[in-house]
């Protein structure tokens, strides 16, 4: 019994560490990262809007954009997206909107924007997107709204909405 106990004590800790290492490696790496080119992850009823801080609850109104370095900004209302870009301009790699009717993600100019004052969107801006001109016109007619071009949509600012 001459070998020093301290020399032995190290090995159990080492063993424990070895046991835990794979587990921790698993945890350390973010598992749910969305693909770099797809729409950003969105957790409804949890994630706050990056402009108004309200909780994003409804897919059909939610929108997002992604910056060139891959950061996502999430919005409960398309109007919040344009408002943030007006208040705090920054480069945008891609804008993502939802088809108001099918709930599908729409990339950038694939969206046709309808401004429909009769629709109660989360921030009351009445801005929604659909995937094609035809449905956009139908929606505009139904709600007493108007179809916007993508650039008209981008040009909107917070002052443009009713107070």
């Amino acid at each position: 019994m001459t070998s020093s106990p301290s020399a032995r004590r190290r090995s159990p800790l080492g063993r424990a560490a070895a046991l835990l290492a794979p587990l921790l490696a698993l945890i350390g790496c973010p598992g749910a990262a969305s693909s770099p080119d797809g729409p950003p992850s969105m957790r409804y009823a949890v994630d706050p809007c990056d402009r108004c801080q309200m909780i994003v609850s409804e897919e059909r109104f939610a929108a997002a954009y992604v910056t060139p370095d891959g950061e996502a900004r999430r919005f409960d209302d398309l109007g919040c997206l344009t408002a943030l870009l007006q208040e705090r301009p920054e480069p945008v790699r891609e804008v993502w909107t939802h088809d108001h009717e099918t709930r599908a993600w729409l990339r950038g100019r694939a969206a046709v924007i309808v401004r429909a004052p009769g629709l109660v969107t989360p921030m009351g801006t009445g801005l929604v997107a659909v995937a094609d001109e035809e449905r956009a016109r139908a929606l505009a007619t139904r709600t007493g709204g108007a179809v916007l071009t993508y650039d008209e949509f981008r040009a909107l600012g917070p002052g443009a909405w009713p107070r």
Partner: peptide, 8 residues
């Protein structure tokens, strides 16, 4: 927030 977002 990161952890919550990553693992939900």
């Amino acid at each position: 927030v990161f952890a919550f977002r990553t693992f939900g």
